[in-house]
Nucleic acid binder design. Structure first.
Lengths: 219, 219, 219, 219
DNA sequence: TATGAATGAGATTTCATTCAT
DNA sequence: AATGAATGAAATCTCATTCAT
């Protein structure tokens, strides 16, 4: 029935916390606040219950607003998720571009360590969204692509850096190994599957990455 | 939903492909065949669509049977998943117990390589169920435990073996690293996120594990 | 989300009161009865309230069944209406094919009169569906077509018969005039807009048609 | 819906394009312009989508104004429609009063022809509103009455004129036949169901009316 | 043992109308 | 006089589970 509504402009841009336009409407200050509340609520609810179990009702309750208002800002539950996902993916990609060239010695170690710390921070905040990508069996898988694409981009950036460091290693593979290591470690840590001290974990991770690529422990 | 039903005897045992008793009923030949069909169908459908998107209707269609029959064998959709999950978890645990002691040199390499190949095979067959654990936000979270428990057990076994090999390394951490590496690599490979040749992937993985633990590449 | 359900086979055939297959399922006796109840209820509710105001809830209440059941037989409210509409359209078309050759004299008159009576009967039973076609602004107008097509077919059949009777009259136009006259008269009568006795109305109508085409009153 | 609101002064008068007072407020120049825009937009949107499918949102967008403003001028969507409908009904009634006495011969023919042309013009402009009356199943049916009343009035006027012309014919019925013929023909023509040239259609219509009432073609 | 049919709670989405500035 | 934002009742549709044969 709905049929002839103009095609809903996909969620929103990305970088801005709250965009100036949604679904063709201009947003004023109040509207922006409301949208921000919805985004926060969405992130929280998806984190708590996962994509499927999350009901729009939970989101609007958390945002202290109404169903009607929700659909003023997002075309659907999926749309909300997409906005959040694209945001996180963008942040991740930016972080990947800042992955340091791996060098032996204490300076190299410090650089890696610092980067990992940032990654872990991001994961702690947005891990729920990231993990939900795995529920990729969402509508038409058109969706799981966001996750897969990100992994590819992420890996590519890392591989570029690693190539600089060690020529005779399969950089592509190494990059993937780093991604696997870092992501899963953060995953196990954040979900509490593995109870390790955060600092200890980051230290170990740093050593592994450096050693794994430079071929020898830095100590 | 399931609400107030008397506690249903949990799905089935584990090792046997199809058990002799379900929900208090004896199973004859025909019954066993039906159950087997349902299990196969379940594995396939969960693999294709993920836990939430999988409908009981899809399962019974794939098994060429009816809704009524489904509930003769399983107390619920969750019950079916649990049975499948426990099966895989059991296999995984068995595999973990056979993780070889890591040794330098070609023999060590061969042992690792062989083990990894088996893991990869298992993952290829049952990865869907494994990945679905990540949708852990299922009812009562009582469910995500299966996955977390398995990871712990798996890691523990590996750590035990590693401890034998290299005393002065944080075995616990190393084990987790191996798990992360192996699982994610298989994941990326199976889902097609990263297009690598299977053999090349296993070779690289083998090297990494051996080097990572023994401190030097085997060549 | 729903996404990948097999395309819903459009309603059903037409001529049979209740078809043997819906949405891929075979129908047994009980199923047929239920479907028949739903069709009856639908016709009634659409008649009472019109397409838009009719709620699925009204239909299932009238059919003494549940929402779930409704969607077992029809893909949507629109689907139900389409089935009813196609049924009526088919009956109408059949009736049009039986429109008599218009002849002067008492026999001609009797033939016309008899046909009009049948038309009026059909209209009385199914007028609600027919009138609803005017609400043609339903999804994509793909729908109003059923009505428009029927009018065209109807008119074409009549024109063919009229051509036989009077060569020098614009048969196409005459046919349309007859359609207009007959349909609206039935409409005004059925809705009570014009309170005329049924017999008187049919008599007058008969005279008009005969006179209009043969050029002179039959008396 | 509207539920328990105090009775709102019915939309507006009728004859004036835009009245000086709405809902108790005086209208200045700007206000009048806004109201005119809303009326135009309403006519257009109702024509395009029909009463039910028309959303207030469509109307305000077409009028380049806001929801809030809409309710400054109309108590409800229904109110807007009523205003439009009453306007058209008034025009129609006026037209009916001018229906000529049917006389044989060229002068009679010309008079009829002229009148029909005016009718057709009006129908072309306002047909959408007229057709929407058929969606009479609006709230309380209090609404379909407008249409039915109009038809009655229209028919009554015609009957009066016809009575003058031919005493021994059932004038009441003849009038209805004319209404049916004229309205449906215009309908089929405007909606494109029947593709006939406008002039040809009017000619044929004229002949039919004259012949139908005077008993013989004018030629 | 098997199955087609039925159920109904619950999830998403729409849109006329009101509010606050 | 005007407007963007908010509201929430109501409608459609889905699907795990139970029933009756």
């Amino acid at each position: 029935m709905a049929a002839e509504r103009e095609p809903v402009e996909p969620g929103a841009g990305a970088a801005d916390p709250t965009p100036a336009t949604v679904q063709g409407r201009e947003l004023r200050a109040r509207g922006r606040r409301t949208m921000a509340r919805l985004l926060d609520a969405g992130a929280e609810v998806f984190a708590d219950r996962g994509y499927h179990a999350a009901r729009v009702d939970d989101v609007v309750k958390a945002a202290k607003t109404s169903h009607g208002t929700f659909y003023l800002y997002f075309a659907s539950k999926e749309d909300l998720f997409r906005v959040l996902a694209v945001d996180v993916a963008t942040e991740m990609a930016a972080l990947a571009r800042e992955f340091p060239v791996i060098e032996p010695g204490p300076e190299g170690r410090a650089a890696i360590r610092k980067w990992l710390e940032r990654f872990q921070g991001l994961y702690e905040r947005s891990g729920a969204v990231i993990r939900t990508w795995t529920e990729a069996e969402m509508s038409d898988a058109e969706f799981g692509r966001i996750g897969a694409d990100l992994v590819m981009e992420f890996t590519a950036h890392l591989a570029a850096r690693i190539r600089v460091a060690v020529a005779d290693l399969d950089a592509q593979y190494a990059a993937m190994a780093v991604v696997a290591l870092v992501e899963r470690t953060s995953y196990f840590h954040t979900t509490g599957t593995l109870r390790v001290d955060r600092t200890a974990m980051l230290d170990a991770l740093t050593d592994t990455v450096q050693a794994g690529i430079c071929g020898a422990p830095s100590a």
